[in-house]
Write a protein that binds this DNA or RNA. Structure first.
Lengths: 310, 310
DNA sequence: AAATAATGTGCAAATATTGCATGTTGGAGC
DNA sequence: GCTCCAACATGCAATATTTGCACATTATTT
């Protein structure tokens, strides 16, 4: 198995044809065709369905597509790590943050640490809440930056982890200003169109437990779209698809320049806490330094979080 | 980056020389030497220190050794999955069990499911407790078989998971029979030699919290060896290194044929619960079937667990 | 039943890999 | 410091793989 092969397979999956994939891989179509044949020989199975043109991924390959993409990332990373030649051998650290924080608070934190300790190299990963904790448990990440509901627990027992509150944020309803004007959210006539989260992601949970119960008439809300990504939800709100509940820090720039209206005075909202998490135990010196750096960066998200670059 | 290359690097890491590694990789030393040079060219960094003979891994490569081994496993697995050609596309499931259960109860469970549903293919993974939960969170495993202390919680909040008690086991002290006879465990004269677990693994925790407090004189125990693996601990007890606390189900065969003596009448022990765990949410049909199969297999570990093959 | 677009194949040139024989080099022993 | 040996590198020729080009084949469209 080779990284090249995985990239070839993904190229076909993404372009939908050998010809286009060949272009992308900088090969003639014929050479590419035989490369695929070779891959199939080596793997020992037919990967593509040639009974139709253009070719089509076999089901068992499509199933592995995410895994293949994941392995491509890991292999590239490994190559980069091997090449890095240990120049900063003992001063690197993986920090994982929840997607919705990766574009708001986390960059600011990393920048802050960078100003204090130029010798520390931080690799930022972005993932959903459970993946973040999964990375922490498997020590693929040393520190997490995640949201949590004030007064609630993290997904992992506190006996395994140490956490630190960095600041506060709000989960607020927003919508495109024209759509806000056109509709009467206080009234009970029209159903409220909104952008939903799947209930198995963090903000889906927050919505179900904190927002839904506070809605005057929960039956009168109408999911118009669903996405697991907060950024996509924000985008849909801007497009006027419906109301989206998002972290205030994320919506702040859009609200400031008028692309979004804050509806938190008319619709329910709730508070969020931003916290840093690490495993209990003996931290490495770098980990301790970064942890302390983060500690010195505690801020009030409501005023400062949007200062993180987007 | 290629799987072959990773295997080459590991071969050098494990054998400590190009010559031996070449043999293991079925190549002449000269060909192997140039392969390594080629790998270094492609990666863009020197991987081995040739200033001494035999060659020596550079630090930044040694650091990545675990990651490389991990990637080798993932790539082999991917190849197998691609080759499996979807013959059993929708009827496979990953079950992860704590190391100490992988050799006792888990095989029996899998065998049991196999008799009911020949069409289901179960892939068994073995890992430590936190890795098991990490796999569950990242959906690399659908179901876990793990120990837990009666009345205690799993490492992950119960709001995310569903668990089911399969049976009971005991965490008991054992030692080689001759060593047992030679020493007076009731008396307070001699320090008690024992095999310790690191405190960051599950059984280390169990020992610290459940066994240590019950020892008459905790100062009088003397760690003679430390291992994270229960099986290694069992082995050391058989070699007479000291007392080892292990799950009764694991020690049962050795106790039965006289290689180990059960000291639970003279030294503290505690109960363990064996449970199955899965994520809350909509299970796939296969997952539901396996869960039900496991449910029908609830047993009393004290009498039946050792029936699992070793 | 063409016409067309997508993929496969024969062939020769270019590259890459290997084994064998042999050259170099670190380090252990004196 | 010298010698020798084991460990690694390299020259070379044989072999295997990969590629582009031109063209054949096959599915889809009209």
């Amino acid at each position: 198995m080779r990284l090249e092969w995985l990239e070839d397979i993904l190229a076909v999956a993404e372009t939908g044809s050998f010809g286009e994939a060949a272009q992308r891989r900088h090969l003639t179509q014929s050479a590419f065709s035989r490369r695929i044949q070779n891959i199939e020989d080596q793997v020992g199975a037919e990967l593509f369905d040639r009974s139709r043109k253009p070719v089509h991924l076999h089901d068992h390959v499509a199933e592995q597509r995410d895994q293949i993409a994941h392995l491509v990332r890991l292999l590239r990373q490994l190559q980069a790590d091997l090449r890095r030649s240990g120049r900063m051998a003992e001063t690197k650290l993986v920090l994982s943050s929840q997607h919705s924080l990766t574009t708001s608070l986390t960059p600011a934190i990393i920048r802050e640490i960078g100003t204090h300790r130029r010798d520390i190299f931080i690799r930022l990963r972005s993932a959903n809440l459970t993946d973040c904790f999964s990375q922490l448990l498997s020590r693929q990440a040393a520190i997490l930056i995640v949201y949590r509901l004030p007064g609630h627990q993290h997904p992992i027992l506190e006996t395994y982890i140490e956490s630190m509150t960095l600041g506060f944020d709000r989960f607020i309803p927003v919508i495109a200003p024209d759509a806000a004007a056109a509709s009467n959210f206080g009234g009970a006539d029209a159903a409220l169109p909104y952008v939903a989260y799947p209930s198995d992601v963090f903000f889906g949970n927050v919505f179900d437990r904190q927002i839904l119960p506070k809605l005057a008439d929960a039956g009168k809300i109408l999911p118009r779209a669903e996405t697991a990504l907060t950024l996509a939800s924000l985008e849909m709100a801007q497009m006027g698809i419906g109301v989206a509940w998002v972290p205030e820090s994320l919506a702040k720039p859009s609200i400031a320049d008028g692309r979004l209206a804050d509806l938190s005075d008319r619709l329910p909202e709730c508070n969020l806490e931003v916290s840093a998490v690490r495993l209990l135990g003996e931290p490495t010196p770098v980990e301790a330094a970064v942890w302390d750096g983060i500690a010195s960066y505690k801020i009030d998200a409501r005023s400062d979080m949007s200062s993180g670059s987007v």
